[in-house]
Design a protein around this nucleic acid. Structure first.
Lengths: 110, 110
DNA sequence: ACATAAAATTCTACTTTGTAGATAAAACAC
DNA sequence: GTGTTTTATCTACAAAGTAGAATTTTATGT
């Protein structure tokens, strides 16, 4: 009974899009996540995620103009929808509340 | 090449354990998440997650004492390990940084 | 124009997480 | 013992995460 939830990586992708706005496309998103999270990410992982996020209505996309660079396909730029922003803020708020209710001792495990 | 990452639901479970410390066991965790996130959660979903989190070293567990004049199996109480706490704080910090770099406009999509 | 290289997206296949429902175990009351 | 309550475990499948290969589109050199 789900498909309305935001996976861990999906959330990272959304945040990267927010940071890169309005120039968020596959490669840039991949590089942004690698730089920020310091973890290896493949382009196909990002694209699979982007596709699912768009299907769920969290994102929207449009092809950009042909660039002045060496060659290559047109970039597909992604934007966060109002629904996506709302969802993103909800999970943020939930975590903040929970963190606020966590005592120091709870994190001192061995 | 992974098994060292924290899934979306897994993170929620960890936070709930932090909040409930030192009385975090299956049922209580399930109820805490339902109350906080307002989403339906089954006990088996929580236990599957707990099991995986323990395997990954994020959690530790021990069976509680019996005889609280109650009935039922002994509770299995979960605690966050130092490694788990570190991981939890890392993802928190990463998201905070990204949120800090997101412009207002980026979230005003249609 | 044609061949080649570059930049990007899409496809295919597999692993790990997420989810639900059914089953089993342990403690209590009688 | 039998039955009831509370909890954990098992089985099976769907969704999200991941990697590598293949494909498409655009630009440049000749």
């Amino acid at each position: 009974m789900k498909g309305s939830n935001l996976g861990e990586f999906e959330e990272l992708v959304m945040l990267a899009i927010g940071v890169l706005y309005p120039d968020a496309y596959g490669v840039a998103i991949k590089d942004e996540i690698i730089a920020r999270a310091g973890r290896s990410v493949t382009l196909s992982a990002v694209h699979a995620s982007l596709h699912r996020l768009e299907e769920k209505g969290f994102l929207q996309s449009e092809f950009g103009e042909a660039s002045q660079k060496r060659g290559g396909k047109r970039k597909k730029n992604f934007y966060i929808t109002a629904f996506g922003a709302k969802t993103l803020e909800e999970v943020k708020s939930l975590r903040e509340q929970m963190w606020g209710d966590i005592g120091k001792v709870a994190l001192q495990g061995n």
